[in-house]
Structure formats: C-alpha cells, structure tokens
Design a binder for these strands. Structure first.
Lengths: 278, 278
DNA sequence: TTCTAAAATAATATCGACAAAATGTACAAA
DNA sequence: TTTGTACATTTTGTCGATATTATTTTAGAA
C-alpha cells in the first residue's frame, strides 16, 4: 500500500517508449501525476540517455550542460541528478558535481551474479506461492514477446524498443509472484544496469542467439513446476548475456579519464569502506 | 570501482552518531568530501529523524517545514527529499509534495521476508568464498558488540547509540564477504527500514531477549562452517525481532490520514503497476 | 627545469522571488 | 443535508542571481 510503493515500483518498462498500447490511466486512476514536473521529465530523459549509452560512463554531468540539453533550470536538473544518484546511475560527490556511473568488466560480473541470486529467489518464491494470475501473466507475456521481432530491420540488427519492453515485462512476470515489492524493485534496478551494459557493448552484429527458444524452455519448466530447472535456465540466460558482452571486449569509460594513477581505485574504495564502518 | 560505490555504499552505520573512534580520513584519503554540502547535511539529519521515528510515517514534509527545521533554503531541502525518496524513506508525488514513507504490519512482514532472503545469500556466499579477513572481521565485530551495554541505563531501557552502531556493524560483517556491493547496499537499505520499525514500536520496556546469546550461537555456527545452521539462526533472529514488534501492536500511521476509503490501497497499487507495464 | 604558491577562472551550491498548481472555503443550487 | 462551483489561500516547482568552493593557470623561487 501507500506512497512508498509509488516511489519503489518505478521502472517496470524500459524507457516510456512511445507508449503504444492503451494508455488509459485505467479506472479511477487519474488520481496521480496528472501534471508531470520538469524535474521528473529531466529525470526520465536523462535516465534514458544513460541507459541507452548515449551519455557514456564517467561522463561529467555539468549542471549547465544538462540544463541546456534538456532545456531546464538548475533546480530541476539538480533534483533529477540527485534521484539518479540514489538509483546508482549517477555518481555524486559533494562540491565536485555529478558523473555518469562508471562501468567495468568486474562490475558486470558482480552485477550478473547478484542478479542471478535475486531472480532465483523471485522465481522460486513465485513458483512456490503459485497463483493462477501469476502463471497466466507469464504465459501472456511470453505470447506477446513471441509476436514481436527482435530487430526492426531483418537485415542488420537495429534495436526494437517494443521488443525490449516486452522482454523486460516477460522477465518481470516470472518473478512478479514473489510477494515482495522490495525484491521486485531491486531486480528492476539491476535490470536497468544490465540493460545499460548491453547498450554499451557495440552490438551492431545481429545476435545469432536463439533467445526465443531459451524463453520457451524456461516457461516450459515453469509450467512443469520444475523450479530447479527453471532457475537453472534463467540463470544461464543471464550468464550467457553477460558473457557475450564481455567477449565483445568493449566495456568502456570506467573513469572520468582524469589522471591520478598513484592510488588504485580498489584501494581507495576499500579504505573508504573501512573508515566508514568503524 | 569508483564513483558508483560512493553512492551505493552509503550507510554502513546507524546515523553518524558522534563518530567516536579514530576519524582519521586515513592515508592519502582526504581526497573526498572535505566540505559537506547543506543538502547532504539536511539529508543525513532528516534521514536520522525519520529512522528514529521522530517524524512519524505518513507525516507531511512541507518544504517550508523542513526548511526551517534544519535552517536551509528550499533547494537543498528539495535535493535531500529527492534522495530520500529514491531511498524509499520518503514518498514523493509530483505537484503534491513529500511524505514520510508509510508503515504497516504487512509491510513489516514483507520487509522481514525479503531481508531474510537477501541476508541468507550474503551469509552463505561469504561462508562459501571464505576469507580470513572476513572471518576475523566477524569475530572482531562480535567482540566489540559484547563489550557494550544494550541500554545506557541499567534500570529502564534507553537506547545506546553505540550499541546500535556495533550491532549493525556485526550483522553487516556477516555478509560482507559475499563479494557483491549491490547485495550489501540492498541489505543496508533493508536494515534501515527494519531499524525504523524497531523505533516505531514503543519499546520503553527493557528487552528481555538474550540477543547476546543469539549472536554468539550464530558466530559459533559460522566458525564451525555450518552454513545451514548459521542461516537458520540468522533468519530466526530477524523473524523474532519482527514478531516482537508486531506483538506490541502499534505500527502506527500507515497513511497521511486523509480520508479516501473508497479505493483500496492494494487496488490502486496493482492498477498502477499494470498500467505501467503495458 | 621542476616544484610551490598565489591569482584567475570555472563550476557547484544556495538563496530569494515568482509562477503554476493544488487545496481549502464560501456560497449557491438541487 | 448534499452536491457543485467560483474564489482565496497555501504549497509546490522553477528561474535567475550570488556566494562559496574547486580547478586551472600563471608567476615566482629553488
């Protein structure tokens, strides 16, 4: 219930993406957010540009730069940046401004591991609890996904936003029955991060992967109530994606590119963590 | 590595709490955050007041109110509120202001479940990876905790901030070897929430619980490398705490107290989630 | 040349004023 | 009474200007 949810259940879909299907704010529900604020608009757009990789990791986000990019004043920009920093998409240092969150191969593997852990819980718990609504939601999500082409162009690969949206919705449906909004919010956050890494890897090559088959096998295991198998497939799905990204070799711009090679990052981080926890 | 961390690894301790031990910014490390900003100050203090329960759930946070309470202008206050809303401690609705995140019994059980899931992973993974540093950290944390009284007054219960800090540090040490900063950050967030619930339950009665024993048994299982037993004890530890809070019966102020009983909360949330995911 | 220190520049953080929106109130009509 | 509507008030959200702090450049000394 309540406000907290509105804050937590934030990004079920990738970008708002032209919002095709019926946008009827459903039922009585024109209750909330009729007039979006400028800060929220900047937040959404900036978030999208970061996820899409248009703003590369480590890129400095000067207030003025963001201001004129999205045609807004300093205050809304600042608010947006502050939200994003709490989301982990932007890093902030007092008196020193904002940067697009960095990225690295190590971070990707850590991210993937964490994601597998959390989604395993989500899936297992959904299967254990088992509601018809949930099962039907999964099937429906798979069906919708299956009817959409992966790429807008059949020749070379060109991302299809609609496919991305439905793909995300499908994976979310799998864990949606876990009964924990917290877990769902965490998984959303991790999914955002993963999406960014996928965008960062230059993937002009048409993915030769049989994703469709993977999804179908997964749902088959779900319908068979074979939790172990379902989890194994899901986990493999994520691990494979990460591996592909890592193989391409370019997970760029881990840092603002400013030179201070004397102190290793890990050293700094470790020291900071230590000094805080005491 | 890098900026992201500073954003994510935020609150290892409960409030900054007079920061006793050596605050030497260690080594070369006066590199970061020398001059805290007003926005950050407001953020910390407001966060503390919410966690401590001084600002009750559902309480409206009017900009002016917060402004004069912490002697700051609108801009820094707004930034702090935006960060807190992303943290899940404050709820925000465009054009309609900020509220202290609501609380309810259902939320507490959901929170506790999630926390058990995540900490189980953290602990299991820490035990599996097993580093000496980690094990020693656990032992050290337990030792420190054991030398501090639970209450400042031996007669009636009066919270000892130092004990709270060390207690938190102890639990964090258990999962600190999991190798995922994401998981640690999530657990921190959940620990914050749990702390708030503890504070919300009027607990003037001296806790008759043998917490010390529970902690010792837990570490014993860790040292014996018995992951199943350790996890069971940890989980029981959290469940028991939640039960105690629930038994007291007062988890107050789930809502801004404004009356609109026609639409059930859950209905609203579900509808919103649905309308977004399509 | 290399290092240090001070001035110059640029960027962040903050305030106060204003515009836009929501909430509350008074009053009329059913 | 209840319902609806125009007005007044409160509050949020935004902008532009300014003070404070970091960064870069320049000048000077070793």
């Amino acid at each position: 219930m309540c406000p907290t949810r509105e804050t937590r259940l934030r990004h079920p879909e990738i970008l708002e993406s032209t919002c095709s299907m019926d946008d009827s704010s459903a039922a009585v529900g024109d209750h909330d957010t009729i007039t979006p604020t400028l800060a929220s608009s900047v937040y959404e757009r900036l978030r999208g540009d970061i996820l899409r990789g248009e703003l590369p990791p480590g890129h400095k986000l000067r207030i003025e730069f963001v201001s004129e990019r999205y045609a807004a004043g300093g205050s809304p920009v600042r608010e947006a940046l502050n939200r994003l920093s709490a989301d982990g998409l932007v890093s902030r240092r007092d008196q020193r401004g904002f940067y697009v969150a960095s990225a690295s191969a190590e971070d990707l593997v850590e991210l993937t591991r964490t994601r597998c852990w959390l989604e395993e819980i989500g899936l297992r718990e959904s299967m254990r609890a088992f509601h018809h609504d949930w099962e039907e939601g999964v099937i429906l999500a798979l069906h919708r996904l299956s009817r959409i082409p992966r790429s807008t162009s059949p020749e070379e690969y060109h991302e299809n936003p609609e496919w991305e949206r439905l793909h995300r919705a499908f994976h979310r449906s799998l864990i949606s029955g876990c009964g924990s909004r917290w877990l769902l919010a965490f998984c959303d956050q991790l999914a955002d991060q993963a999406y960014r890494y996928r965008q960062l890897a230059v993937q002009r090559i048409y993915p030769k992967r049989k994703e469709k088959g993977e999804h179908e096998a997964l749902v088959q295991a779900v319908l068979a109530r074979d939790a172990d198998r379902a989890v194994a497939l899901l986990t493999e799905h994520y691990r494979l994606t990460a591996d592909i990204i890592l193989k391409t070799g370019d997970v760029p711009g881990s840092e603002p590119a400013r030179a201070n090679p004397d102190r290793t990052r890990t050293g700094t981080v470790a020291a900071r963590a230590r000094s805080r926890s005491k």
